[in-house]
Design a binder for these strands. Structure first.
Lengths: 259, 259
DNA sequence: TTCTATTTGTTCGTATGTATG
DNA sequence: ACATACATACGAACAAATAGA
């Protein structure tokens, strides 16, 4: 190897995770643990710089991530106000971002109940939002609260047949299917369109969850879309009452871009 | 501390709009006008720097605002891909913004079933996220699909007692309570924190909706927060199966998180 | 009231790390 | 291997809003 150029000031030392992410995680943890009560001010930015030994730029990136999660609200000349602890994972799960989705997938064991190659009839094609007549995979899975615990989700996942390799990997990996597709085919998920509603469980879903057929369940439909607008995956998951919770903060967008 | 430099140094240009906001508006306009088609790449950041004669930092702030609007997606080593030409309008009961919420409220007739002045006991205070012991208003309302139609929502709305004037106006106005509070007291809503879950309806809610007690319903809890972080209103609305659908698009986080 | 210290917002500059093609 | 492009990170300075003296 060639001699490395000596850095003038800080040694770069490979940060496994970006510093702003570490800072953000620490602050989030403090807020959730109650160390910063709702309504109170976070320490000022210069103070956080000293405490974490990072630049103000890094602190502001971390604070922006807290802002985007709805945990704080910053006012010029005043400070950053803690908005909510948003704790209470007493039961159920709260998913408001792709990260939360991954977290949820990693934290709850998944059973693959079966995979089948199907031809998409017009009715299914209409629901999927694709052309009929092409072969797709249908995967049935179930999620448990913990290993051996109660069922909290029954899912049907649909992907075009070309992703068969990822489908086969599914049984050996705890990752969600879209993550496997991303890793294996290099397609990047740009967005996930989700719909939440209360529906009556089908017979198969009720059986998976141990409910009576027709029981009311939370239904989440997801469409995974890549950056070119292509449909990569469609899923329908149903959850028994109390097993799923979705949290979301909507903000007034009045030109306040936060740098 | 002591002596010092005069505070006034150069004649400051009067605060126009921030540069990043001007840049963002220009880029949004170009995307909307079709100069940058969906799927295409935006000019690179250094190129935008030269064109707008601003620093790369400013360009990145502008691009982040485009990202947050769902217009672009940036990928390291590749570029910024145009995702859409406009913020997509949602349909149905989808409420992705405060405007959508207002739209929904205006489109369905509301009945005020009763208002009561209550003292907040510790249990309620814990749920509301406020101090116990203070007087609040509790308003019971119901929404119908159309006048005389089926009930699609039963709500309990809680506001501090000081907003009594807005509460009294509620019977005469079709506007939602938070809009009345905004008009009358000048507090403006900065964000709304929402939680969606499936729960068993209480006896009162079931009666409002014409269901059996304990029926599974979609429950939406909302906390309305002003720009100072103050809690203005808390509501719990329950909807019978099929009457409520929530649509939401989550996008890849930019620059933050992603382990 | 005015003044002042504090705090966040905006903007520049520079350097390096890392993914992509 | 290489150039390109975005991501991360440091430093500096001033502007603007806020709150308290």
């Amino acid at each position: 190897m060639t001699a490395k150029k000596k850095p003038v000031r800080a040694a770069p030392q490979r940060a496994a995770r970006p510093k702003h992410s570490v800072v953000a995680a620490a602050l989030i943890d403090e807020i959730r643990s109650g160390r910063h009560a709702p309504g109170a001010l976070l320490p000022s930015e210069p103070e956080l710089c000293r405490r974490f030994e990072v630049s103000r730029h890094t602190i502001r990136v971390a604070l922006r991530s807290l802002y985007e999660k709805g945990l704080i609200l910053s006012r010029q000349g005043h400070g950053s106000i803690v908005q909510a602890t948003a704790v209470e994972p007493r039961y159920g799960f709260a998913c408001s971002s792709i990260d939360d989705l991954l977290q949820y997938a990693a934290a709850t064991p998944r059973e693959v109940l079966g995979t089948a190659r199907i031809d998409v009839d017009p009715a299914l094609a209409s629901w999927l939002g694709c052309e009929p007549g092409y072969p797709w995979w249908e995967i049935r899975t179930r999620r448990l609260q913990e290993a051996g615990g109660a069922a909290i989700a029954s899912s049907r996942v649909y992907v075009p047949e070309v992703y068969g390799a990822a489908v086969r990997e599914l049984k050996k990996s705890p990752l969600p299917l879209f993550a496997l597709m991303e890793a294996r085919y290099g397609h990047h998920i740009a967005q996930i369109r989700q719909t939440f509603s209360v529906v009556a469980a089908t017979a198969g879903e009720a059986a998976d969850l141990g409910l009576e057929a027709g029981a009311a369940v939370m239904c989440v439909e997801r469409r995974f879309i890549d950056e070119r607008g292509g449909l990569l995956e469609v899923s329908r998951s149903v959850h028994p009452p109390g097993a799923f919770r979705y949290e979301l903060t909507v903000r007034q967008m009045l030109g306040t871009e936060r740098p």
